[in-house]
């Protein structure tokens, strides 16, 4: 199984498409989901993306920010991005008014690998905002694979109010998924798990580890320990995938900003096989 190469590059990677904000939804403190539509209908096909890819969202005067797709709407004008307001650009995005126009370049990066034919069990591990690029995988899986295959979604957050997409867990369960959420700090109303995400992997029922895949996105330390826990459960190294984050500027492998060892995250990633980043993750300040 290999990652699928990025879509054919657009005519110019610097081509910016106008997109219009249609709605916003507050998610967790500082995190919101924005739905955009392409201003020009024909752009939807040119900028079509797959789960795990990201777009550069552009606010003139502020700059661009690399934001992953938190829902992939095929054959649609809609674009769904879940954003944490943390810098100049993302704070500007948080202040956008409905109907306002911003720019978009993309999609960039490889995206999550295709599900292999013999897949039995998919384990999705999302920490904090890291669940955002995994939601399209969850939705794609639930739409087509539940009859014979198993999906486990493990979600971690600092506290229960930081659990992303918490309102959707029940519908994922209703569609057949196992969803377990855990928080670092409990609260009086919290009845769920307390502790780190990798500890949940130790307790999972994994019938056929060789046919199990693990997709993780979140803090690097969470991903690393999740991989260790998965290896302890006999999930093969090649079946473990991380989505990595570094500062992106050009998104086309020309600016050097997102370098991580031998990789430019923007073009070789953001999704990597665990084996390709395991050693690098042990080096501080790489």
């Amino acid at each position: 199984m290999t990652t699928t190469p990025a879509n054919d590059p657009p005519v110019s990677a610097w081509t910016t498409a106008p997109i219009v904000l249609r709605s916003t939804k507050a998610e967790t403190p500082g995190v919101f989901t924005a739905e955009f539509e392409f201003k020009c209908e024909q752009d939807a096909a040119r900028f079509a993306s797959r789960p795990g890819q990201f777009n550069m969202l552009y606010c003139p005067g502020y700059g661009e920010s690399a934001i992953s797709l938190s829902r992939v709407c095929e054959n649609s004008q809609r674009l769904v991005h879940t954003i944490r307001s943390v810098g100049d650009v993302t704070n500007r995005l948080a202040r956008l008014k409905i109907g306002e126009i911003i720019g978009l370049r993309g999609p960039f990066g490889n995206g999550w690998p295709d599900f292999p034919d013999d897949l039995q069990h998919l384990i999705v591990v999302g920490g904090g905002i890291g669940l955002a690029p995994l939601r399209p995988v969850i939705e794609q899986f639930l739409a087509s694979h539940m009859a014979t295959r198993e999906l486990t979604v493990l979600v971690g957050a600092r506290s229960c109010e930081h659990l992303l997409f918490a309102g959707e867990y029940q519908s994922w369960r209703d569609s057949g998924a196992t969803v377990i959420a855990t928080v670092d700090r409990s609260a009086p109303e919290w009845k769920g798990e307390v502790g780190v995400v990798p500890a949940l992997i130790d307790r999972l029922n994994i019938r056929d580890p060789a046919e199990t895949q693990l997709f993780a996105c979140g803090p690097e330390i969470m991903m690393s320990y999740s991989a260790t826990a998965a290896l302890d459960r006999d999930i093969p190294r090649d079946n473990i995938w991380f989505s990595m984050e570094r500062h992106m500027n050009c998104a086309i492998g020309h600016c050097g900003r997102c370098q991580f060892g031998s990789h430019f995250i923007c073009t070789s990633g953001p999704v990597f096989r665990y084996n390709d980043v395991q050693q690098l993750l042990t080096i501080h300040g790489l």
Binding site: V86, R246, H247, C255, Q259, H284, G285
Partner: peptide, 26 residues
């Protein structure tokens, strides 16, 4: 730009290569 600039690797405002050692090594 240069990989020796502190803000070169800033993610969420925090540089990944926060010391000269890591920047020279890069």
């Amino acid at each position: 730009d240069s990989c020796f600039n502190l803000e070169f690797t800033a993610v969420h405002g925090t540089p990944v290569r926060n010391d000269v050692r890591s920047r020279y090594r890069q």
